[in-house]
Protein backbone atom coordinates (compact mmCIF):
# COMPACT_ATOMS: atom_id res chain seq x y z
CA UNK A 1 0.00 0.00 0.00
CA UNK A 2 2.71 2.40 1.09
CA UNK A 3 4.80 1.54 -1.89
CA UNK A 4 1.90 2.27 -4.16
CA UNK A 5 1.26 5.71 -2.68
CA UNK A 6 4.90 6.54 -2.95
CA UNK A 7 4.86 5.41 -6.55
CA UNK A 8 1.88 7.60 -7.28
CA UNK A 9 3.57 10.55 -5.58
CA UNK A 10 6.67 10.03 -7.56
CA UNK A 11 4.86 9.81 -10.81
CA UNK A 12 2.95 13.01 -10.00
CA UNK A 13 6.19 14.71 -9.27
CA UNK A 14 7.70 13.42 -12.50
CA UNK A 15 4.68 14.47 -14.47
CA UNK A 16 4.83 17.94 -12.94
CA UNK A 17 8.50 18.11 -13.78
CA UNK A 18 7.85 16.97 -17.33
CA UNK A 19 5.14 19.60 -17.76
CA UNK A 20 7.44 22.24 -16.33
CA UNK A 21 10.25 21.14 -18.60
CA UNK A 22 7.83 21.20 -21.53
CA UNK A 23 6.67 24.68 -20.61
CA UNK A 24 10.23 25.85 -20.18
CA UNK A 25 11.14 24.38 -23.54
CA UNK A 26 8.03 25.96 -25.08
CA UNK A 27 9.04 29.33 -23.61
CA UNK A 28 12.59 28.87 -24.69
CA UNK A 29 11.72 27.89 -28.25
CA UNK A 30 9.07 30.53 -28.73
CA UNK A 31 10.48 33.44 -26.78
CA UNK A 32 14.16 33.06 -26.08
CA UNK A 33 15.54 30.70 -28.73
CA UNK A 34 18.88 32.45 -28.60
CA UNK A 35 19.49 31.01 -25.12
CA UNK A 36 19.66 27.50 -26.57
CA UNK A 37 23.34 26.62 -26.94
CA UNK A 38 24.50 26.38 -30.53
CA UNK A 39 26.00 22.89 -30.10
CA UNK A 40 22.60 21.56 -28.98
CA UNK A 41 20.96 23.14 -31.99
CA UNK A 42 23.52 21.49 -34.24
CA UNK A 43 22.46 18.10 -32.83
CA UNK A 44 18.90 18.46 -34.05
CA UNK A 45 19.57 20.14 -37.40
CA UNK A 46 18.66 18.10 -40.49
CA UNK A 47 21.00 19.57 -43.13
CA UNK A 48 19.43 17.64 -46.04
CA UNK A 49 16.43 19.98 -45.80
CA UNK A 50 18.46 22.74 -47.43
CA UNK A 51 19.84 20.50 -50.20
CA UNK A 52 16.87 20.28 -52.56
CA UNK A 53 15.09 17.28 -51.03
CA UNK A 54 11.83 16.37 -52.72
CA UNK A 55 8.72 18.24 -51.56
CA UNK A 56 7.45 15.16 -49.72
CA UNK A 57 10.34 15.52 -47.26
CA UNK A 58 8.89 18.79 -45.94
CA UNK A 59 5.63 16.91 -45.33
CA UNK A 60 7.37 15.01 -42.50
CA UNK A 61 6.49 18.08 -40.45
CA UNK A 62 4.56 20.54 -42.64
CA UNK A 63 1.90 18.01 -43.61
CA UNK A 64 -1.00 20.39 -44.10
CA UNK A 65 0.94 22.92 -46.14
CA UNK A 66 2.29 20.10 -48.28
CA UNK A 67 -1.16 18.74 -48.98
CA UNK A 68 -2.45 22.19 -49.92
CA UNK A 69 0.52 22.78 -52.22
CA UNK A 70 -0.05 19.40 -53.86
CA UNK A 71 -3.44 20.72 -54.98
CA UNK A 72 -1.95 23.90 -56.42
CA UNK A 73 -1.06 24.58 -60.04
CA UNK A 74 2.48 25.33 -58.83
CA UNK A 75 2.99 21.65 -58.06
CA UNK A 76 2.08 20.83 -61.67
CA UNK A 77 4.20 23.43 -63.42
CA UNK A 78 6.56 20.80 -64.89
CA UNK A 79 4.25 17.82 -65.33
CA UNK A 80 1.29 19.75 -66.73
CA UNK A 81 0.23 18.26 -70.05
CA UNK A 82 -0.31 21.59 -71.71
CA UNK A 83 3.06 22.84 -70.51
CA UNK A 84 4.77 19.77 -71.97
CA UNK A 85 2.98 20.31 -75.26
CA UNK A 86 3.74 24.00 -75.48
CA UNK A 87 7.39 23.67 -74.53
CA UNK A 88 8.08 21.08 -77.24
CA UNK A 89 8.37 18.25 -74.78
CA UNK A 90 10.14 20.52 -72.27
CA UNK A 91 13.01 21.18 -74.65
CA UNK A 92 12.61 24.97 -74.83
CA UNK A 93 15.35 26.42 -72.65
CA UNK A 94 13.72 29.77 -72.06
CA UNK A 95 10.68 28.19 -70.43
CA UNK A 96 12.60 26.56 -67.58
CA UNK A 97 13.25 29.62 -65.40
CA UNK A 98 9.72 29.97 -64.03
CA UNK A 99 8.50 26.38 -64.34
CA UNK A 100 11.46 24.71 -62.58
CA UNK A 101 13.11 27.61 -60.73
CA UNK A 102 16.23 27.11 -58.69
CA UNK A 103 15.77 29.94 -56.23
CA UNK A 104 13.14 32.63 -56.01
CA UNK A 105 14.86 35.93 -55.39
CA UNK A 106 11.95 38.40 -55.30
CA UNK A 107 11.84 40.45 -58.48
CA UNK A 108 14.71 38.64 -60.24
CA UNK A 109 14.07 36.11 -63.02
CA UNK A 110 15.22 32.74 -61.61
CA UNK A 111 17.79 30.34 -62.99
CA UNK A 112 16.49 26.91 -63.92
CA UNK A 113 17.18 23.95 -61.66
CA UNK A 114 18.29 20.42 -62.43
CA UNK A 115 17.04 18.60 -59.30
CA UNK A 116 13.49 17.39 -58.52
CA UNK A 117 12.02 18.86 -61.65
CA UNK A 118 8.81 16.87 -61.28
CA UNK A 119 7.98 18.95 -58.21
CA UNK A 120 7.76 22.06 -60.41
CA UNK A 121 7.52 25.20 -58.29
CA UNK A 122 7.89 23.81 -54.80
CA UNK A 123 8.88 24.51 -51.22
CA UNK A 124 12.66 24.61 -51.58
CA UNK A 125 13.05 27.16 -54.39
CA UNK A 126 10.38 29.35 -52.79
CA UNK A 127 11.86 29.21 -49.28
CA UNK A 128 15.55 28.29 -49.19
CA UNK A 129 17.92 31.22 -49.53
CA UNK A 130 21.39 31.78 -48.12
CA UNK A 131 21.30 28.57 -46.08
CA UNK A 132 17.99 29.16 -44.28
CA UNK A 133 14.25 28.74 -44.70
CA UNK A 134 13.05 32.25 -45.41
CA UNK A 135 9.51 32.99 -44.37
CA UNK A 136 7.17 35.61 -42.94
CA UNK A 137 7.96 34.85 -39.27
CA UNK A 138 10.74 35.49 -36.83
CA UNK A 139 10.79 32.07 -35.20
CA UNK A 140 12.99 29.24 -34.08
CA UNK A 141 12.75 25.89 -35.83
CA UNK A 142 15.01 23.13 -34.51
CA UNK A 143 15.34 21.08 -37.73
CA UNK A 144 16.40 23.91 -40.02
CA UNK A 145 17.57 27.52 -39.73
CA UNK A 146 14.93 30.16 -40.54
CA UNK A 147 15.02 33.81 -41.46
CA UNK A 148 12.28 36.40 -41.40
CA UNK A 149 11.90 38.10 -44.74
CA UNK A 150 9.22 40.73 -45.28
CA UNK A 151 9.07 40.00 -49.04
CA UNK A 152 6.97 36.91 -48.35
CA UNK A 153 3.92 39.01 -47.66
CA UNK A 154 4.43 41.37 -50.58
CA UNK A 155 3.33 41.10 -54.20
CA UNK A 156 6.94 41.53 -55.24
CA UNK A 157 7.53 37.91 -54.28
CA UNK A 158 5.01 36.73 -56.87
CA UNK A 159 6.28 39.25 -59.43
CA UNK A 160 9.34 37.05 -59.87
CA UNK A 161 7.34 34.95 -62.32
CA UNK A 162 3.92 36.58 -62.61
CA UNK A 163 5.62 39.52 -64.25
CA UNK A 164 2.80 40.74 -66.42
CA UNK A 165 0.14 40.22 -63.78
CA UNK A 166 2.30 42.11 -61.32
CA UNK A 167 2.67 44.99 -63.76
CA UNK A 168 -1.11 45.10 -64.23
CA UNK A 169 -1.59 45.00 -60.49
CA UNK A 170 0.89 47.84 -59.92
CA UNK A 171 -0.91 49.95 -62.50
CA UNK A 172 -4.13 49.72 -60.50
CA UNK A 173 -2.51 51.15 -57.37
CA UNK A 174 -4.23 48.44 -55.30
CA UNK A 175 -3.09 47.92 -51.74
CA UNK A 176 -4.27 44.34 -51.58
CA UNK A 177 -1.36 41.96 -52.08
CA UNK A 178 -1.56 38.87 -54.29
CA UNK A 179 -1.32 36.78 -51.12
CA UNK A 180 -4.38 38.45 -49.59
CA UNK A 181 -6.54 36.90 -52.33
CA UNK A 182 -4.55 33.87 -53.51
CA UNK A 183 -2.94 32.78 -50.22
CA UNK A 184 -5.46 33.63 -47.52
CA UNK A 185 -4.25 33.12 -43.95
CA UNK A 186 -6.05 31.42 -41.08
CA UNK A 187 -5.12 30.34 -37.56
CA UNK A 188 -3.29 27.04 -37.24
CA UNK A 189 0.07 25.40 -36.77
CA UNK A 190 2.92 25.35 -39.19
CA UNK A 191 3.78 21.73 -38.39
CA UNK A 192 1.76 18.61 -37.66
CA UNK A 193 4.46 16.30 -36.35
CA UNK A 194 3.83 15.29 -32.74
CA UNK A 195 5.22 16.40 -30.30
CA UNK A 196 7.10 19.06 -32.25
CA UNK A 197 3.87 20.86 -33.19
CA UNK A 198 2.92 21.42 -29.54
CA UNK A 199 6.26 23.05 -28.93
CA UNK A 200 5.34 25.99 -31.15
CA UNK A 201 2.70 28.64 -30.70
CA UNK A 202 -0.29 28.86 -32.97
CA UNK A 203 0.21 31.26 -35.86
CA UNK A 204 -1.41 32.13 -39.13
CA UNK A 205 -0.94 29.68 -41.96
CA UNK A 206 -1.28 30.79 -45.57
CA UNK A 207 -3.28 28.73 -48.07
CA UNK A 208 -0.63 26.99 -50.18
CA UNK A 209 -3.19 25.65 -52.67
CA UNK A 210 -2.95 29.08 -54.36
CA UNK A 211 -6.64 29.12 -55.35
CA UNK A 212 -7.31 30.96 -58.56
CA UNK A 213 -10.11 33.04 -57.13
CA UNK A 214 -13.72 32.84 -58.26
CA UNK A 215 -15.26 35.08 -60.79
CA UNK A 216 -18.62 35.96 -59.37
CA UNK A 217 -21.31 38.36 -60.48
CA UNK A 218 -20.16 40.97 -57.95
CA UNK A 219 -16.58 41.00 -59.22
CA UNK A 220 -17.79 41.65 -62.72
CA UNK A 221 -20.40 44.04 -64.02
CA UNK A 222 -22.24 42.65 -67.05
CA UNK A 223 -25.08 44.42 -68.82
CA UNK A 224 -26.70 44.20 -72.23
CA UNK A 225 -28.80 46.73 -74.12
CA UNK A 226 -30.41 47.03 -77.54
CA UNK A 227 -29.81 50.07 -79.72
CA UNK A 228 -31.36 50.70 -83.13
CA UNK A 229 -29.21 48.30 -85.09
CA UNK A 230 -26.98 46.67 -82.53
CA UNK A 231 -26.86 44.87 -79.24
CA UNK A 232 -24.27 46.24 -76.85
CA UNK A 233 -22.68 44.33 -74.00
CA UNK A 234 -20.95 46.38 -71.34
CA UNK A 235 -18.42 44.64 -69.11
CA UNK A 236 -16.52 46.09 -66.18
CA UNK A 237 -13.98 44.36 -64.00
CA UNK A 238 -15.06 46.07 -60.82
CA UNK A 239 -13.02 44.28 -58.16
CA UNK A 240 -10.06 42.28 -59.45
CA UNK A 241 -6.89 44.42 -59.38
CA UNK A 242 -5.38 42.86 -62.48
CA UNK A 243 -6.78 42.00 -65.88
CA UNK A 244 -9.49 39.40 -66.09
CA UNK A 245 -8.27 36.97 -67.11
CA UNK A 246 -4.58 37.57 -66.48
CA UNK A 247 -1.56 35.62 -67.67
CA UNK A 248 2.11 35.51 -68.40
CA UNK A 249 2.56 32.66 -70.82
CA UNK A 250 -0.69 30.83 -70.30
CA UNK A 251 -3.76 31.50 -72.39
CA UNK A 252 -6.82 31.70 -70.10
CA UNK A 253 -9.95 33.07 -71.73
CA UNK A 254 -13.37 34.45 -71.10
CA UNK A 255 -15.82 33.84 -73.91
CA UNK A 256 -18.65 36.31 -74.20
CA UNK A 257 -21.34 34.33 -75.99
CA UNK A 258 -24.44 36.15 -77.15
CA UNK A 259 -27.47 34.27 -78.46
CA UNK A 260 -30.42 36.06 -80.06
CA UNK A 261 -33.93 34.65 -79.68
CA UNK A 262 -37.31 35.34 -81.26
CA UNK A 263 -40.49 35.94 -79.28
CA UNK A 264 -41.02 32.20 -78.73
CA UNK A 265 -37.53 31.80 -77.36
CA UNK A 266 -36.28 30.03 -80.47
CA UNK A 267 -32.60 30.62 -81.22
CA UNK A 268 -32.01 32.82 -84.26
CA UNK A 269 -28.33 33.51 -84.36
CA UNK A 270 -25.35 34.10 -82.14
CA UNK A 271 -21.83 35.39 -81.98
CA UNK A 272 -19.12 35.71 -79.44
CA UNK A 273 -16.03 37.61 -78.49
CA UNK A 274 -12.88 36.40 -76.76
CA UNK A 275 -11.44 38.25 -73.79
CA UNK A 276 -7.88 37.07 -73.37
CA UNK A 277 -4.63 38.51 -72.10
CA UNK A 278 -2.72 37.15 -75.10
CA UNK A 279 -4.95 39.07 -77.47
CA UNK A 280 -4.88 42.18 -75.29
CA UNK A 281 -8.64 42.03 -74.85
CA UNK A 282 -8.75 41.04 -71.16
CA UNK A 283 -10.73 43.34 -68.87
CA UNK A 284 -8.64 46.11 -67.36
CA UNK A 285 -9.47 46.98 -63.74
CA UNK A 286 -12.44 49.36 -63.65
CA UNK A 287 -12.26 50.19 -67.34
CA UNK A 288 -15.59 49.61 -69.10
CA UNK A 289 -15.54 47.61 -72.31
CA UNK A 290 -18.36 47.76 -74.85
CA UNK A 291 -18.82 44.93 -77.28
CA UNK A 292 -21.05 45.26 -80.31
CA UNK A 293 -23.21 42.46 -81.70
CA UNK A 294 -25.62 42.41 -84.63
CA UNK A 295 -29.05 40.93 -83.91
CA UNK A 296 -31.30 39.64 -86.71
CA UNK A 297 -34.42 41.80 -87.17
CA UNK A 298 -36.89 39.36 -85.52
CA UNK A 299 -34.88 39.38 -82.30
CA UNK A 300 -36.92 39.74 -79.12
CA UNK A 301 -34.33 38.89 -76.50
CA UNK A 302 -30.65 38.17 -76.07
CA UNK A 303 -28.86 35.78 -73.74
CA UNK A 304 -25.35 36.64 -72.56
CA UNK A 305 -23.20 33.84 -71.18
CA UNK A 306 -19.65 34.28 -69.92
CA UNK A 307 -17.54 31.12 -70.05
CA UNK A 308 -14.15 30.76 -68.47
CA UNK A 309 -11.37 28.54 -69.82
CA UNK A 310 -8.27 28.18 -67.63
CA UNK A 311 -4.69 28.53 -68.85
CA UNK A 312 -4.03 24.84 -68.34
CA UNK A 313 -7.07 23.18 -69.89
CA UNK A 314 -9.78 23.21 -72.50
CA UNK A 315 -12.81 22.69 -70.24
CA UNK A 316 -15.03 25.73 -70.08
CA UNK A 317 -17.35 26.65 -67.25
CA UNK A 318 -20.17 29.18 -67.18
CA UNK A 319 -19.52 32.00 -64.75
CA UNK A 320 -22.24 34.53 -65.55
CA UNK A 321 -25.50 34.21 -67.47
CA UNK A 322 -28.30 36.71 -68.05
CA UNK A 323 -31.12 37.42 -70.51
CA UNK A 324 -32.08 40.86 -71.83
CA UNK A 325 -35.43 41.74 -73.49
CA UNK A 326 -35.60 44.07 -76.45
Amino acid sequence: MKIRIRWIRWSFLLLALAVLAGLALFKLINEQPRLIPAFLVEQVRQPDLLEYPEARRCADCHQEIFEAWKKSRHSLAWVSESYIKNSENRSKEKCLACHVPKEVVPGVKPDPRLQQRDDGIYCVPCHVRNGAMNGPYDLFSPPHPTRKNADYRSSKFCSTCHQKTFKEWSDTGSRQTCQSCHMKRRGGRLTQKFPLNWMHVKREVADHSFPKGDLVTDSLYVQGSFTDAAFMVRLVNTTVPHRVPTADNGDPRLFVQVTFMDEKGGELDGDREILSPQQDTALIYQKPVDLQFFPPTQTQSARIVLRYQPAWGKERSDVVSLTVQR
Binding site: N86, K94, C95, K164, N249, D251, D271, I274, S276, Q278, Q279, D280, T281
Partner: peptide
Protein backbone atom coordinates in the same frame (compact mmCIF):
# COMPACT_ATOMS: atom_id res chain seq x y z
CA UNK B 1 -14.62 40.64 -91.69
CA UNK B 2 -15.81 39.75 -88.19
CA UNK B 3 -14.74 36.13 -88.67
CA UNK B 4 -11.52 37.18 -90.36
CA UNK B 5 -10.60 39.45 -87.49
CA UNK B 6 -11.30 36.73 -84.92
CA UNK B 7 -9.13 34.28 -86.82
CA UNK B 8 -6.38 36.76 -87.46
CA UNK B 9 -6.24 37.89 -83.84
CA UNK B 10 -6.15 34.28 -82.73
CA UNK B 11 -2.59 34.32 -84.11
CA UNK B 12 -1.77 36.82 -81.39
CA UNK B 13 -2.38 34.07 -78.84
CA UNK B 14 0.36 31.95 -80.39
CA UNK B 15 3.31 34.35 -80.11
CA UNK B 16 3.88 33.42 -76.46
CA UNK B 17 4.26 29.78 -77.42
CA UNK B 18 7.67 30.66 -78.88
CA UNK B 19 8.44 34.15 -77.57
CA UNK B 20 8.70 35.17 -73.92
CA UNK B 21 8.95 38.85 -74.76
CA UNK B 22 5.63 40.56 -75.42
Amino acid sequence: LRDFKKRYMELKSTCSKCHTND
